[in-house]
Design a binder for these strands. Structure first.
Lengths: 125, 125
DNA sequence: CAGGATCCATTGGGATACTG
DNA sequence: CAGTATCCCAATGGATCCTG
């Protein structure tokens, strides 16, 4: 997704398009959505998240959380105990994203069957 | 986030989680979002779309449109003219997805600066 | 013009092992 | 427990050439 170096053509959105895709790549990422969903109701520890999110690997969860932290959507709080413990929670910015994601989730819930049916129909021929 | 509601580790979401991620992978994909945005106001031809969506390659646009067609979100209409012409347009199902995507787009518009600032702050240390 | 098909570099992401 | 590092294969996606 390293966006194009396309010479700047005229359209006014050439560059907002890039910025847009940039943010969207983070925000629309599968694990990102899952993590934000998981943190919706409050802080969670790393392992709790991993157990909650079926199928995420240790590595991917780490990377996803790093990305979210970098983007200011998630706050990381390490405790100096032993064994170590780290809590993750949504920042206000992270919370502000929830309605949009929930609407998306609702759409999937409502139309998932239709999509799956369309796929079957399409594949049948 | 299968159940996105409660952090309660309810067991039975292993598989809805997968289905969910499945649809989300299509729907949250960068080019998919762009294409739906491009088709929001009516049918468009292949090349028009490619010109509109900065940075998409011929191949990726083809694949994205195929995927959307398969999922029943986009309707493909070939004309038997020469040179050939193909129109793409959103189906009702495709249109039903717009509000959700527009809300996401609105979020990006509103918070893009904040995210970029967060990134700079994070990278600075 | 639309869209296969092929080639190929790059990346993503799982598995595993190690550290504080 | 949380996080890092390494290995390594599979998928991704751009470039290019070919067809109706």
């Amino acid at each position: 997704m390293p966006a194009a170096k396309t010479a700047a053509p005229s359209p006014p959105d050439a560059d907002s398009c890039k910025a847009f895709g940039n943010i969207l790549d983070r925000v629309g990422d599968k694990w990102t959505v899952m993590v934000i969903g998981g943190l919706a109701d409050g802080p969670m520890r790393f392992n709790a998240l991993q157990r909650l999110i079926t199928g995420v690997s240790h590595r991917m969860l780490t990377l996803t959380l790093r990305g979210l932290e970098r983007d200011g959507l998630v706050k990381r709080t390490p405790f100096a105990t032993v064994p170590p413990r780290v809590d993750y929670e949504l920042t206000p910015l992270g919370h502000s994203l929830r309605p949009a994601l929930e609407q998306l989730a609702a759409w999937v819930g409502t139309h998932r069957a239709a999509v799956e049916e369309a796929r079957r129909a399409f594949d049948r021929q």
